[in-house]
Design a binder for these strands. Structure first.
Lengths: 198, 198
DNA sequence: CTAGATATAGGACGACTGTCCAAATGCAGA
DNA sequence: TCTGCATTTGGACAGTCGTCCTATATCTAG
């Protein structure tokens, strides 16, 4: 079936774009990874940028699905935010090798002046909005977006350095710090609320 | 003179590698930027990787020079650390366009499995050691390296997101947060010292 | 002023790039 | 079984890549 091949192309391209970058990945690389002829590509995609679009859409869908799952299973918003922070550990090995899939793609597309840069930024926005929603539910109000951006940035920095130094200890230590920071924020919030109420 | 041309090549390559990435920058790009013929390259460099090495060495030298300057002029270590944090603002425009020169190069070379990745990481090490030294002088002892890595990571994350969202406000806000964090650390340190002494 | 080293120019090279196309194959319904 | 569409193949294409080579120009030392 045609859809199967198309999906296999997108899946292989997704992995290769992550591991070696968009520019450095050629049609020949993807073709040999999928096990098809190069010519067959243009029956499924018009151009390489089309594949990039599909890869980004795939990532958007997968991310949305993951965040939705967390929103259903995770009981309280703080626990959900901790789930986000712990992606760094769950994907630690990949991150040490290739960095964060979102951040590195966004950086590369920025340097390439690529039209899809804003689409890659939409991946960040997905996390940002989800995190903001969790902070809002915790009662942070207008500060929620700032806090969402803050831990989004923290995790980006951790990913970059863990990759540069291939350092697992640093990664774990910073994850602990981020969780502690979250607890502090929540503690600060409740004391403020209490002092207002009382 | 030959050295002049060589330096101009390195300078142009440095800029282009930063703005468009190592892989995406061709000899033709550098040649036209310098205003010389392509063939002339191989009188100064054997290979493209040789240019990359020279560019990294140039960055290492420039960075070391900048840090040395800060260590001479800046009176107290805390002020020096604040100088580091404020690079984000000083270079804000470039960072929003192209990200952090150190982090993005390191990420790219990691994906390319490039031999010079460790050389790029040495750039990080330069900042890391310098920061650690400042924290040591402030009296943080064994925690100095952790703290150095922490703000190094924070600034990396800020650069990545400021680039992805092209957001100047976020950049400034996070710089303020980092300075506040530094003040907190120092405040926590002196109270501990006082309580020990008394 | 000349000989030799240094520097530059411009093009050749094979390999690879993204793109496109014609021919072959596989599979559906009539 | 035959027709027609979807799918796949392998190669052609123009261009660019990093690399290399030779001829020319420029400069310096004797």
């Amino acid at each position: 079936m045609a859809v199967e091949t198309r999906d296999r192309i997108i899946e292989a391209a997704d992995l290769l774009f992550y591991q070696h970058g968009f520019e450095a990945t050629s049609f020949a690389d993807i073709a040999s990874a999928v096990g098809i002829s190069r010519g067959n590509f243009y029956h499924h995609f018009k151009t390489k940028d089309d594949i990039l679009d599909s890869v980004i859409n795939r990532r958007l869908a997968n991310t949305e699905q993951m965040l939705d799952r967390w929103e259903v299973t995770g009981s309280d918003p703080a626990e959900r935010i901790r789930s986000f922070i712990h992606i760094l550990i769950v994907n630690g090995e990949k991150i040490r090798k290739f960095g964060c899939p979102v951040g590195t793609l966004s950086s590369e597309l920025a340097k390439l002046n690529h039209a899809a840069k804003s689409d890659a930024a939409a991946l960040f926005t997905l996390f940002r909005s989800w995190l903001r929603r969790q902070f809002e539910r915790l009662g942070f109000g207008d500060r929620s977006d700032e806090l969402a951006m803050h831990i989004l940035g923290r995790s980006q920095g951790v990913a970059t350095l863990a990759n540069a130094f291939d350092d697992d200890g640093f990664l774990h230590h910073e994850v602990d710090l981020m969780c502690a920071w979250l607890d502090d924020q929540i503690a600060g919030l409740t004391t403020t609320n209490n002092s207002i109420r009382e």
